[in-house]
Write a protein that binds this DNA or RNA. Structure first.
Length: 814
RNA sequence: GCCCGGGUGGCGAAAUCGGCAGACGCAAAGGACUUAAAAUCCUUUUUCCGGCAACGGGAGUGCGGGUUCAAGUCCCGCCCCGGGCACCA
């Protein structure tokens, strides 16, 4: 029998061609089959994939193929974020229109991904640089404006010098731009557009517990909770002596207010500013500047006395008003009451400036008091607190908050760390913000019928920190839609996270020209059952898109509250140096090279086999050769057995091989349905092949006839090219993943006898094989009589015998 | 400091509900085939002790306790690694 030499290059090229005309792979959203929707994020439209991407796609792709075989409709689009032109390519690309380079990149991506065997439905592709897509981003912007959720304000913003644009808070990582990890962001005062994500803050938080808990990874939920940073407390007015003007403070510990010895305001606080003379104002400005330059964590605590005093509304005490550089203007009210005895930071400040320290909380057991060295920050029992003395902290907080409200000098209050989403960018690419600045009418939204506002093509990218659109008179100079007078077009473009917040909804109705998508289509597909993405988006995309879904619900586009029922965050592929693979670090591994070396199926199999998908995986290709060997063994086993003449069939061998086959089907099916640990699925396939090889010589034609197609079907989700080719070798016609998923037969999968482990005091001393269903009493008898156990039982007293049917007998002796 | 993960052989890992720790693969060593090498196939491979051997015995899942007939898995207290938040009042 001539051996067929398997040449992976030949096979892949052949299948590459077939892939491109694979019309019938498209999912049909109108079909009646159950829905199952998978979205994956593509992190970077650079037109170049690395092995990190291959792993991410392999996970979703294997699942999608399995779901197809189970008869589900799967939408498996490539998520196109279009975060923008990679800065490092800017020089090359700057003369080209974003639409042009995006399409070029898409072609390149398609080529690469086809080569890797990913079955994407390109017909549903949406790109954020398409004018149609601008239209709906802008449409959403107008809806936000109508509802008062879009507004413009002057604020201190994060500025990335490298990108030459502002960034949202979520896009600042360790004080640096999320795309330029060694470039510290600066603070710049600019007028910007914001979207009021804070209007949904309570719901965003509540639904974490009510809708996502247990279905999204705890890590992501915890990050979102942290980021939202809810904190319950109270606001209290301290009236200034003389003017009677109040300085409002926020505190989570109103129960400690009798211990407040000083009011400290942020240097930019407006009321405090009024108290200062020119010299004071200069000092305050210095503080603000210092903080803008360094990170807030890197400056020592400094402050100075304003000369003014305020009155504690509870105790009536006269308290000096200070300016403190550590008090943040944009959290709480911009002023605090310092309670040095019960707050570490206040303690430090008051010790430095020799301000009085008054303990007012005693631990519940009465054991210790505040020492001169440290603050006592836990809850306890109030003392030296007038009528409130003796109350536990928690109760005091409630009572005192209520009184502040009743008497009008404060109220219980919840504050959040989360701020509104700054969506303005001074980039060229991105959706133009559809607003016109009219000297007479103010901010005028572009009428809906005039959408989309599209980007001009002749633009010079300046990198100067203003939108390059400002230099395009044909774009900027417009007539006011209201009064018809001369006006200027807004030149900021939208954060591309706007696009990624809803693009996946567009997939279910990609060609709608009257609205972003038909609500009925969204109802059919959403909320998506399963979302697969990277953890890097925990507080970026995954928070924004939750907000967007709630907003779309409120304007009647969808009827659900959360975009994704289940979230799965796959682990990152780390570079050999242990840090995340990224182009800027230069530690990426090129899939093209890997494929040239080992073949696409081998590469996919390798990344799936190396670790369970949720785990991070340092790149180490030492074991790739093993996956290649496995595929070649499968190839050889199948091809040499297709027309094999009957040898010496042995019913026992058939039985063993078929049993293993059905056990493997069961195992792989369970892995797919429960946990997607494809590494164990592939291990099971390897075990199957090992068993088949052992039994090969004695298998009957009938057994072979059952084994070969099932083996190929099981391989399909992990190694699509070879599975397709083998399917054809078997005389079938493809595509293999449109075949039904194999079904296992419990009878076949069952072992002949149950192996029961015999233990003495929990240590294994022997094992017996018994028929399934052997009664417990019988098992106990067999165990006690077992010769191997005798030495351990002899001369001792049997205290207890534990029997786990079909598994184990444990004899406790003394 | 607070909040999430995680820690198992030389390496990647498995053990899914408290029931045989190390499946599957890599690497390594030895052997077969070969003039030779590659490829392929076979054997060994957590560790210590005893044995020519089949085998037998002990230890072992970051550390220390506990619960249980039985713990990688559950509980308590630590250590280390990764991630998030943090002068957030």
């Amino acid at each position: 029998m001539p051996e067929i030499v398997y040449d992976h290059n030949q096979i892949e090229l052949k299948w590459h061609e077939r892939w491109n005309r694979a019309e019938l792979y498209r999912a049909d959203p109108n079909a009646a089959a159950p829905k199952y929707y998978v979205v994956e994020m593509l992190p970077y439209p650079s037109g170049r994939l690395h092995m990190g991407h291959v792993r991410n796609y392999s996970i979703g792709d294997a699942l999608a193929r399995y779901m197809w075989m189970r008869g589900y409709n799967v939408q498996h689009p490539m998520g196109w974020d279009a975060f923008g032109l990679p800065a490092e390519n800017a020089a090359i690309q700057r003369n080209r229109h974003p639409r042009e380079w995006t399409l070029t990149n898409i072609e390149e991506m398609k080529r690469q991904m086809n080569r890797m065997g990913f079955a994407y439905d390109w017909s549903l592709e949406v790109t954020t640089c398409e004018p149609e897509y601008y239209r709906w981003n802008q449409w959403f912007f107008l809806k936000m404006m109508e509802r008062g959720l879009a507004y413009r304000k002057q604020a201190l913003l994060n500025w990335c010098p490298e990108c030459a644009t502002v960034l949202a808070n979520e896009q600042v990582v360790d004080g640096c731009c999320w795309r330029h990890e060694s470039t510290p962001v600066e603070q710049r005062a600019m007028e910007q557009w914001f979207w009021k994500i804070t209007a949904y803050v309570e719901e965003l938080l509540r639904d974490i517990d009510e809708k996502l808990e247990g279905k999204w990874p705890e890590r992501v939920l915890s990050m979102q909770r942290n980021w939202i940073g809810r904190s319950e407390g109270a606001e209290v007015d301290f009236k200034l002596e003389g003017s009677g003007e109040p300085i409002r403070v926020f505190t989570t510990r109103i129960d400690t207010i009798f211990g407040a010895t000083v009011v400290i305001a942020a240097p930019e606080h407006p009321v405090a500013q009024k108290l200062l003379d020119d010299e004071g104002r200069a000092r305050a400005k210095q503080m603000v500047d210092a903080r803008a330059k360094k990170g807030p964590g890197d400056i020592g605590k400094e402050g100075f006395f304003t000369g003014a005093y305020a009155v504690n509304p509870f105790s009536g005490a006269r308290m000096p008003v200070w300016i403190g550089n550590f008090v943040l203007m944009d959290y709480g009210t911009g002023a605090i009451m310092a309670v040095p005895a019960h707050d570490e930071r206040d303690f430090e400040f008051c010790t430095t400036y020799k301000l009085p320290i008054v303990p007012v909380i005693r631990p519940v057991d009465g054991s210790l008091e505040v020492t001169p060295k440290t603050a006592f920050t836990d809850d306890g029992v109030l003392e030296n607190s007038g009528e409130y003395s003796g109350l536990p902290s928690a109760e005091a907080r409630r009572v005192m908050g209520d009184r502040a409200k009743r008497e009008g000098f404060g109220e219980p209050k919840v504050t959040y760390r989360l701020k509104d989403w700054g969506i303005s960018r001074q980039r060229y690419w991105g959706t133009p913000i559809p607003v016109i600045h009219c000297p007479k009418c103010g901010l005028v939204p572009v009428p809906e019928k005039n959408l989309p506002v599209i980007l001009p093509i002749d633009v010079k990218i300046t990198g100067k920190g203003r939108s390059p659109l400002e230099d395009v008179p044909s774009f900027v100079n417009v007539r006011c839609p209201k009064c018809g007078g001369d006006a200027r077009r807004e030149t900021d473009t939208m954060d591309t996270f706007v696009d990624s917040s809803w693009y996946f909804y567009r997939y279910c109705d990609a060609h709608n020209s009257s609205q972003p998508f038909d609500p009925r289509a969204a109802d059919k597909w959403f909320p998506m059952d399963q979302y697969i993405g990277g953890v890097t988006h925990a507080i970026l995309h995954l928070l924004y898109s939750r907000f967007f879904t709630k907003f779309m619900r409120d304007i009647g586009l969808v009827t659900h509250d959360e975009p994704a029922k289940n979230l799965f965050t796959q682990g990152m592929v780390l570079g050999a140096d242990g840090s995340a693979m990224s182009k800027s670090r230069g530690n990426t591994v090129d899939p093209e090279e890997m494929i040239a070396k080992y073949g696409a199926d081998t590469c996919r199999l390798f990344v799936l086999f190396a670790a369970p998908p949720e785990k991070d995986m340092p790149w180490n290709e030492a074991s790739v050769a093993g996956q290649r060997r496995f595929l070649e063994r499968v190839w050889k086993f199948v091809t040499r057995n297709i027309d094999r003449a009957s040898m010496t069939p042995d019913a026992a061998a058939d039985r063993r091989a078929l049993r293993k086959l059905h056990q493997t089907i069961r195992k792989v099916t369970e892995d797919f349905s429960n946990r997607w640990h494809f590494n164990t699925s592939i291990a099971a396939l390897m075990e199957l092949l090992n068993t088949l090889s052992d039994e090969e010589a004695a298998l009957s034609r009938e057994a072979i006839g059952q084994i070969l197609p099932n083996l190929v079907l099981l391989l399909g989700p992990f190694a699509p090219y070879i599975a397709e080719e083998l399917w054809e070798q078997l005389g079938r016609t493809g595509p293999v993943f449109r075949e039904a998923w194999p079904v296992f037969d419990e009878e076949f999968a069952k072992e002949d006898a149950a192996e029961v482990v015999l233990q003495i005091n929990g240590r294994v001393r022997g094992r017996i094989f018994v028929p399934f269903g052997t009664p417990q009493a019988e098992l106990e008898k067999l165990a006690l009589a077992d010769t191997k156990l005798q030495p351990f039982i002899a001369g001792k007293q049997v205290v207890k015998v534990i029997v786990v049917p079909e598994k184990l007998v444990n004899i406790v002796v003394r």
